Amino acid sequence: MDFYKISKDSGKRISKFNSDFIMSRVIQTDKATNIVCMNLEENGIIGYHQAAVPQLLVVIAGEGYVRNDKEEYIKVQSGDAVFWEKDEWHETKSDKGLTAIVIESVELNPSLFMPLKK
């Protein structure tokens, strides 16, 4: 389980087409990719299971806790991204609610685009 930070500090300023914003890349794939939005309500849980393919959980709102095969839960919040390798056991839960985008693909490699969270 690796943790990444989605932040404008690792982004690039875009000015093309009279634009003025910072774009932070998350992932790029050439193969089939599933992208879903998961909404955990108060006391919601994505149960303990193995990742069928590499998986990236990008927290966009709220906060919660994740774990892998260890019993220890680690807090995550908006702006955090958690990466699990294929076959890695994991679980996500939230006491207050959490919204996340989940990206699944055989070729995910978030370290190409995002810095590890310190």
Rank of each mutant, 00 (worst) to 15 (best):
V102Q: 03
E63S: 11
I27E: 13
E71I: 14
F83S: 03
E71K: 14
N18G: 10
Q28F: 05
K96A: 01
N109C: 10
V53N: 06
G79T: 00
A61E: 07
N109F: 14
D80P: 10
K75T: 13
D87G: 14
R67S: 02
P115S: 00
V59L: 13
V58K: 14
A32L: 12
Y73P: 01
D80A: 06
E72T: 14
E41D: 04
K96Q: 05
Y73T: 05
K86T: 06
M1E: 13
S7P: 01
K96N: 07
P54F: 00
D95N: 09
L57S: 09
G64A: 08
L112E: 05
E91P: 15
T33I: 08
M114I: 12
V26E: 00
I103F: 10
T99G: 02
Q77Y: 03
Y4K: 01
E88D: 15
I103S: 02
A81H: 06
Y73A: 07
E88C: 05
S105F: 08
I6Q: 03
M23A: 07
D69Q: 04
I74G: 01
G64D: 01
A51E: 06
I27Y: 04
S15G: 04
G62L: 15
I22L: 08
N43W: 01
P115M: 00
T29I: 07
S10E: 00
H90R: 14
V58G: 02
Y65I: 13
I74V: 13
S24C: 04
E107G: 06
K86S: 05
T99F: 10
I103Q: 03
K70R: 11
V59E: 00
L57D: 04
K16T: 09
Q55K: 15
K86H: 05
K118L: 08
K93Q: 06
T92I: 09
G64H: 11
E71T: 11
N34D: 14
M38H: 12
M114N: 05
Q77T: 09
Y4A: 01
K31N: 15
H49Q: 15
F21W: 13
E104H: 11
D87H: 13
K12M: 15
S7W: 04
M114H: 04
K117G: 00
I35W: 02
W84F: 09
P54K: 00
